[in-house]
Design a protein around this nucleic acid. Structure first.
Lengths: 211, 211
DNA sequence: CTGGTTCTAGCACGACCGTGCGAACTACGA
DNA sequence: TCGTAGTTCGCACGGTCGTGCTAGAACCAG
């Protein structure tokens, strides 16, 4: 069972690995719309045109399927939000770029049900268990990253000294979150634009030398 | 079957009506935690110590149970948020009071899973059907009310002329929404306080003569 | 006491759930 | 060529789901 592969190269993927990835891909799409709790092995099997056992064998329990789906969505978030956002220079520019990357990822419809984590967060915020904990960790990490950039910006004199970085991040994340929910609910991307405007103005207000 | 009651007075409730209300009460609590889709007739029956048929007979379909639960939660929202908020004078005071009533209702834990509508909104934002439509209506009505107060405030000169009422409401509702999700996720009421602070500062900034 | 309405329980149904097991098929190293 | 490991399938299980039907209990009007 332990990893006995010496070579981590782009190595040819076996059939099993390709199927595994395909299952997770479908699972992410489904869960972003209907929730991680509504994920069903039979449903996934039908969607993929394979047998229920064929799906089940890859995870050996429903909970593992859910956890792996969550992890796979985390990788998408890293690729679609973190990676582009982190290209900006540390400090204010990066803080803004991360918010914009988040908004763009919502607007592009990377997941058909909007931000995967917003969906799962709302679903599991009041339900304790490993999924709740994983989501809380991810959320904490994301906010922590933003806060760190805010502090960097403040130390660089890009943000006014009186600004509380934690509160600022809260106030930046709030319109992004709401933009996600409302744009999906009303199938109207203009809500993303409202979120973008709110972020821009909040940052301008917190910045020194408000242009 | 048609309503043949002449007297709509506080009339003594029959056993059936009391049971009906008790079911909806439990359903609201359950759904605020686990979601409206996870509501289960058998689960409700167990929770209430009655038979499955005893629950089912009151609604005759699961969808009606869900819709009635949603309506019952709407009444709670009216009683716990709208009613106290509307006591304030129209305009800026009422806008602020409505936000504060919303925050207070979250903080008091009126529903064990946080704001019922935040939960159901996230659950059904991407799923079309009558529940989605009902939730979208309710959300639109709530924002509409806030926007109306914002316009009243602006006409009364309480808000700066340059403020866009729709955008302002978006920026007020966002921290409230995020406060709900994060306070439940982290079981930490300090997030409600962050939301309160965000609302207060945003209103102060939009108001004329910023004290 | 009687008869009707209202409410709840019991039971059965088909469907789908998560999970386990063994058989078939595939691919590849010896 | 054979054997072994990896992958998928068919099938079965106990359980819960939503939904009907029927019988009885509780209540109330006459």
């Amino acid at each position: 069972m332990e990893e006995r592969r010496a070579e981590e190269q782009p190595r040819r993927r076996s059939d099993g690995e390709r199927t595994h990835a395909a299952i997770l891909d479908t699972a992410m799409r489904l869960a972003s719309v209907e929730g991680l709790g509504s994920l069903t092995i039979g449903r996934l099997a039908k969607e993929l045109g394979v047998s229920k056992s064929g799906v089940f064998a890859h995870f050996r329990s429903k909970e593992r399927l859910q956890l792996e789906t969550l992890a796979a969505a985390g990788e998408v978030f890293e690729r679609e939000v973190l990676e582009p956002g982190l290209k900006a220079a540390p400090g204010l520019a990066r803080l803004q770029a991360l918010c914009e990357a988040h908004l763009s990822y919502i607007q592009r419809g990377v997941f058909p049900g909007g931000c995967f984590f917003a969906q799962v967060l709302a679903e599991y915020d009041a339900v304790s268990g490993p999924i709740h904990d994983e989501v809380a960790d991810g959320q904490g990490g994301w906010f922590g990253l933003l806060e760190q950039e805010a502090r960097t910006a403040q130390q660089a004199g890009e943000l006014a000294a009186g600004v509380d970085p934690v509160q600022l991040v809260f106030e930046l994340a709030a319109p992004v979150e709401l933009a996600n929910y409302l744009s999906v609910l009303n199938r109207d991307p203009r809500f993303v634009e409202r979120g973008r405007r709110a972020v821009r103005e909040r940052l301008a207000q917190a910045a020194t030398s408000p242009a």
